[in-house]
Design a binder for these strands. Structure first.
Lengths: 222, 222
DNA sequence: TTCTTATTCAAGTATCCACTTGAATAAGAA
DNA sequence: TTCTTATTCAAGTGGATACTTGAATAAGAA
């Protein structure tokens, strides 16, 4: 037992998941799939790639065991293989944020400066939900809301927000949430609502982190 | 803010750490560095690669922010950049073990069958340590012991074990530990000791996991 | 059956990567 | 200074990777 060749093969095997995650487009796929299962064409649109290319990326993830797929009629739905994959993706983000100085610039270039953005923690949102003086807005695309959301949240995708502003209940403060720390949907929603004179805040991070903490969720399409 | 180009750049940046980890030899380096800092030539020997190649791998890890280096006289010592890197490496291992069926075969090919190996948990070892009826053996190479070890452990690298068997105190049961789940040193030590008629067991996983749990350690070379 | 739609497959190209070899630094010792 | 040792750099090679294009499946509708 235990000669070089087997050791190399073992470690080569261990890093397969890292290689699968080691591509920006595939990471985007994982980030979207953390919201719930999606068919190939929708995923391709989400990451702005051709369907053929997206399909090949998905098969790479499949081979690495990070996702699984199921056929339903004419479409094939992909989803994360398990919560371990989400943990890996989160550990990767944490490491990247902690150590590559260059990343700060990349984050700023994409999300801008959140210093002046009204942001509340999960704990704070739970308190407010118990008090009942808050409107929670899920601004992700509809299928992601359907796959699971914070209890009592209203689905109002950012893409529709401008035209459906009147649907947002008057009165309480509004808390918008989306996919996670690198998703801008909630930022845009808060901006739009604030411009309309409403009081609005962004939930820190997003739905997968809420779920990962074991907080209550609604309608996981049972 | 937030157009495709910046989003792609951000995710490309986020996965840099995964790409750096996405090579078996570099993963071996991380696994060794999780024991403590080491100079280039020793690392090259550990992963059975040329020094030039090892140096280039280390620089890749350096660029990704996973390790850092310091010069001391004529040698350059590399070490993990932070505990976040250890967490990432552990998350990767967990994901790999959970999802790629093929990995089971690779593990068996390298470590063999541990079913008949006497293995004890960290909790059990702590209990035994409090009772004081146990001899703890650190069978990793000397420099790794020097960089930190379980309190009261004796340093006895497997490579020296055969010739230094008489140094192992008589009486109590022996618990050997090493680098982690994919390290064979403790397995070999237990085998050797058992063959000598001693009662011996392997600690589950290894020193980094003991340390990560916040358990007491000795002599972190302050 | 044919037609449509969603997905995968196959071939081609430019780029990146791992490892080798041999030369270049750079710190310390003599 | 020269010599030694540890490490890095640079160039070269075979193989993997990302994306494109166009063809091939495969399920469902007509």
């Amino acid at each position: 037992m235990g000669h070089h060749q087997e050791k190399e093969a073992l470690f080569d095997g261990l890093v397969e998941a890292a290689r699968a995650l080691g591509n920006g487009r595939r990471a985007e796929l994982i980030d979207v799939l953390a919201q719930g299962e999606r068919p190939v064409d929708e995923l391709a649109a989400e990451i702005n790639q051709s369907i053929a290319n997206t399909s090949q990326h998905l098969q790479r993830l499949l081979r690495a065991g990070l996702v699984c797929s199921r056929r339903s009629g004419t479409r094939i739905y992909y989803s994360l293989a398990s919560p371990a994959v989400e943990r890996l993706w989160r550990a990767l983000r944490d490491t990247a944020e902690a150590h590559t100085e260059a990343l700060g610039d990349l984050v700023r270039a994409y999300v801008g400066d959140r210093a002046d953005l009204n942001m509340i923690t999960r704990d704070e949102l739970r308190r407010r939900l118990r008090q009942g003086d808050v409107v929670v807005l899920d601004v992700r695309p509809q299928p992601e809301y359907d796959a699971g959301h914070i209890p009592g949240a209203l689905s109002l995708p950012v893409s529709d927000l401008k035209s459906r502003l009147r649907e947002v209940p008057q009165g309480g403060e509004i808390v918008a949430y989306c996919r996670g720390p690198y998703c801008l949907y909630a930022d845009e929603a808060v901006q739009m609502l604030t411009d309309e004179g409403r009081r609005a805040a962004r939930l820190e991070e997003g739905f997968p982190e809420w779920k990962a903490e074991g907080l209550p969720i609604e309608h996981p399409t049972t």
